[in-house]
Design a protein around this nucleic acid. Structure first.
Lengths: 130, 130
DNA sequence: TATAAAATAGTAATCATTATCATTTTATAG
DNA sequence: CTATAAAATGATAATGATTACTATTTTATA
């Protein structure tokens, strides 16, 4: 049975205030202001738990540590090849790609994970300067 | 300047014979038959290098270690939620999603990474038995 | 064949994450 | 309220995957 925990609430609340998909380490550093004795293990444990119960999303980009997202509205992510920033994309849904994948495949297609990549606005403007 | 290496050739060749997207560890175990003294570091170093020069693909699924693919023809991957197997999908291209992502986004969308998931044929048939 | 650059094997180090466990917190019941 | 049991925590050790380091070997070229 799941019991209430102040630390878990705080992690969830922190994620709700951010749109930059912070890492466990960043979340830890920030929570320490409110809970100076919180441990990194507690942060990881709760991030896993919150992901399991569908309150947050874990984003494994394949580059660097995992990132976490408190926004559960369906949306897609962009990863900048230059600075690594993860940015929310405002685009229409592309669930139809599941049908394309299912066609001729003998397993069941239940979901998909998509990352777009390229260069973000900031990196583009900085490279123009140089 | 890039110099030739028997070990690198062997890694590349091994990947060309497989369609199951082996891990570095699996590649290492197999290469040891031909090169009993090969080190895991050499395997990782060459897998990174081969990926950099575009001869193979690194697949970071977010679950378990990275997997590697010697097939550079454009294609998509399915990851079984139950057994973790990575399977090639034979589906039409979905590059049009880049345009959808680009619409209203101020950076540049250059590419995308997509994984489909669900249950593979094998896991489906096994769960029927039980 | 000599030489320099690159690659290797062996191993240590690092990074991200998970596991362990004694102590504390939370929920529930008397 | 207090007692109790389950769950969560903090502190820390352990793990798994990958990268870094370095003396030695291999490769390409002169």
């Amino acid at each position: 049975m799941l019991k209430h925990s102040r630390q878990r609430d705080s992690i969830k609340n922190f994620l709700m205030t951010r749109t930059d998909h912070p890492t466990a380490e960043t979340i830890y550093e920030n929570l320490r202001r409110e809970y100076p004795k919180i441990s990194l293990g507690t942060v990881y444990r709760n991030l896993s738990l919150l992901t399991e119960i569908g309150e947050i999303q874990t984003i494994s980009t394949g580059v660097g540590p995992d990132r976490f997202d408190g926004n559960m509205e369906p949306h897609y992510h962009f990863i900048c090849k230059q600075c690594g920033r993860v940015i929310d994309l405002e685009m229409q849904g592309i669930d139809h790609i599941n049908l394309l994948a299912q066609h001729g495949f003998s397993g069941t297609i239940e979901s998909h994970t998509v990352f777009f990549s390229g260069r973000c606005e900031k990196c583009l403007s900085e490279s123009k300067i140089k």
